[in-house]
Amino acid sequence: MEKKPLFDKLRTILLEQDWEERKELAEKLEDLDDQLNSRDRLEEKVQPILQDQQEHFKNNFPKLFGPQITETISKQIKDSQDEVVEALYPIIGRMIKKYIASEIQKLSEKVDAQMELAFSWEGWKVRIKAWISGTPQSEAMMSQLIDPKIEEIFIIEKNSGLLMGSFSKNQTVDQDMIAGMLTAIKAFVEDAFAGGEQELDSIDYDNFKIVVKSFNSFFIAIVASGGMNAAFKDRIDSTVLEFADKVLRKARKGDDEEVDQKQISGSLEEYFNDFDNVDQ
């Protein structure tokens, strides 16, 4: 009997498991090598991890980096005060100018009203009438004036002039076209007359006034009738700012392209339907 076949048989018996394991290991190694060197396969494996990390980073960015960013900004502001002042001066200067103008207007209205009340014949007539009827003088005085009222509100996308939402007590005009024309008028005035970064604030016609409030990507046009005074304008300002912050910012979060016109219009109604009836 030959020794070699027996020896081969013995080797097979003893090393078979090792061979299989080696083969398996080699296959695994080859597969791993293929995974590492094939862009598609590597991408397939790594992409979900990267996406998860990206999502995690996106969601936790303020938490992770908020304090550092705030600290960096504070330091930057501290270290380069001149540059910051230079950058903010035009904006703050304009804001201060507007605020002072509005306060002066309020003061002038107050003085006018007091002078009128004290010296005019109308004032005396109202006083006597109020004294006879027993109603407070202030109430009788107010009823002599035409109360300002909000007639319509349009929220318009800045560049395209497309209507994002509207509120109207009359529903007489095509609001899409009005939004477009208001955008064109605003653009024309700002291009033709405004120096620098100034923007159209209001349009007056007859007994109506269109107050324009500009934001970054949209503007709000408020059509009001009656004697618009500074206090009413102030109230509009704060309500519009609150509305922009609470409703419009949320509406814009979902999709950059389209906003829900119905939702915005509904919220406008909630905010402004009873606006004129609120006691000042």
């Binding site: 996308e157 800045k158 560049n159 395209s160 002039g161 497309l162 899409d176 076209m177 939004a179 477009g180 064109a184 653009a187 024309f188 700002e190 291009d191």
Partner: peptide, 26 residues
């Protein structure tokens, strides 16, 4: 689809048309 159509006054060269009328056009 609602088309809001802007009929812009004619100009021999388009750079004379106020860009603000054209911006945001789809």
């Amino acid at each position: 689809v609602t088309l809001i159509i802007w009929d812009i006054a004619g100009e021999t060269e388009q750079n004379k048309v106020p860009a603000s009328y054209q911006l945001g056009a789809h």
